[in-house]
Simulated scan of single mutants.
Amino acid sequence: MRHSTASALQDPGPSTAHLACRLAVLALLALPAPALAQADATPASASPTVTAPDPLVPNVSYAPGQYAKVEGTIVSRKGDALLVRRQNTQELSVVTLTEHTDIESPTGVLNLERKKQDMAMLKPGLFLKVRGHGGDQKELVAERISFHKGALKVTNQISSGQVELKEDHEALETKVNATTDSLNAARSRARAEFSSIATRIADLDAYDEKFTGSVRFATGSAMLTAEAKSTLDSLVSIGKGLNGSLVEIAGFADSRGGAEYNQRLSQRRVEAVVAYLTQEQSVPLRKIVNPTGMGTSKPIGSNETEEGRALNRRVEIRVLVNRGMNAPDSSKP
């Protein structure tokens, strides 16, 4: 009997294995309920807990006064603070808006003009460009923000849940078939348009003089007369509606008095004209090109006579237009 038991321990048969399995099941059933609950909870507690991060925690900081620019997407916004993710990176920057922040979108021919936009348009999902300097809190204080209308449209659609992915193969095939019969004509138009655009781009740095005018001043004076104001009003009226126009302003004096005095006097006359155009006629400062006092240079009359000196006490205004922006589109019939 002892021999058979030893043999069974050394070489357990099917009956022994079956008995061991039954004993293991009974042992598990005998465990108390809390122990089973603890055993079941162990795998869950082993997995890491993911805590949602604060949406306005940057991983990029800026030294106070450091110039920087960021091109990317608004991740979130809290009041005047934006969290912007740089394009194609995981870099997050806090961008602060102030009352001095310029917000604009390109518009006009070739997107050369700028249109002011409202701060409320800066919503999560908007792709934009930010330029500014580092602030005291290591954030980027925005001085200029620009974005395209197309990006704003997509952002608004995303916000209202209206963006739908349309990948209908049959619809696309129908459109392709509809344009096949006019492919050659489309190619011809494309070549003509490309040639026209290339010419206009080449002319973007070229300006043509549209018209000129001048105003006169009394001896030693920089005060605009009623006649001078009327002349300026007429020039502004004529120039309305011109695309890409610029205004050149140069001031002059007669030869009486010292050179330094006449230089200052000619500059004061220029400043008087600029002030009138910007304040009374709302001409944007960006359209006034380098207004300069020229002293006694370039006289148009003899400084030996009163009539000649009166001609030299003047400010000349030249209105220039961009050749590329005002050229006719040769690609259109």
Rank of each mutant, 00 (worst) to 15 (best):
I197G: 08
T96H: 15
K332N: 11
K175I: 02
G125D: 04
A259G: 10
E113N: 03
S160L: 13
D80Y: 03
L277C: 02
Q66V: 08
A202W: 00
L140N: 03
V75W: 10
A68Y: 05
A44I: 13
V84K: 02
S105Y: 04
A37I: 14
G161Q: 05
N290T: 09
R323L: 13
V270I: 03
S188M: 11
G134H: 06
K138V: 10
I158N: 10
R189G: 12
G132D: 03
L9S: 09
T107F: 02
Y62T: 03
T107A: 04
S221F: 04
L285Q: 11
H169Q: 07
R286Y: 03
K287L: 13
D136T: 05
N312S: 09
D208G: 13
Y62Q: 10
M121L: 04
I317V: 15
L165W: 01
A206T: 13
P53T: 08
N59W: 09
A327P: 15
T155E: 00
R114M: 01
G72V: 03
T219D: 13
P12N: 00
A228M: 05
L232F: 03
A24I: 09
P291E: 00
A8M: 06
G241M: 03
R189P: 14
S188L: 10
T305Y: 13
V176K: 05
D203Q: 15
S221A: 02
D254Y: 10
P333S: 12
E227Q: 12
R86N: 14
A202G: 15
S302P: 15
A8C: 06
L320I: 04
V154E: 03
H100R: 12
S159V: 00
K210A: 15
G251C: 06
R314P: 15
G65Y: 04
T51C: 11
R318P: 13
S15K: 12
Q66F: 05
P106W: 08
R318I: 09
G150V: 02
E193G: 07
S76N: 13
I317A: 06
S182A: 05
S245P: 14
E227L: 06
Q162G: 04
A228Q: 03
R77L: 07
T107C: 07
N177G: 04
D168W: 04
G239S: 14
N156A: 05
P64L: 09
L29E: 15
V270R: 01
E164I: 06
A39W: 12
T73N: 07
G108K: 01
V94L: 14
V70K: 05
H3R: 12
G308M: 13
A310V: 08
A120M: 05
V130D: 11
R114V: 00
R269V: 02
K240C: 10
E209L: 13
M223W: 02
N156K: 01
V130Q: 05
D168K: 01
T278F: 00
T16C: 11
A68F: 01
V84D: 08
T231N: 07
V270L: 02
A17P: 14
Q279K: 09
L82R: 07
G244K: 03
D203P: 15
G308F: 10
E307A: 14
T155L: 04
G125R: 01
E316L: 09
V215M: 06
L311K: 14
G161P: 15
L92I: 08
E99V: 02
S331L: 02
P58F: 07
N88K: 00
V141Y: 05
L56M: 13
E193R: 10
N312I: 10
K138G: 12
L56S: 11
E139P: 12
H100P: 12
Q38I: 07
G150L: 00
G134Q: 10
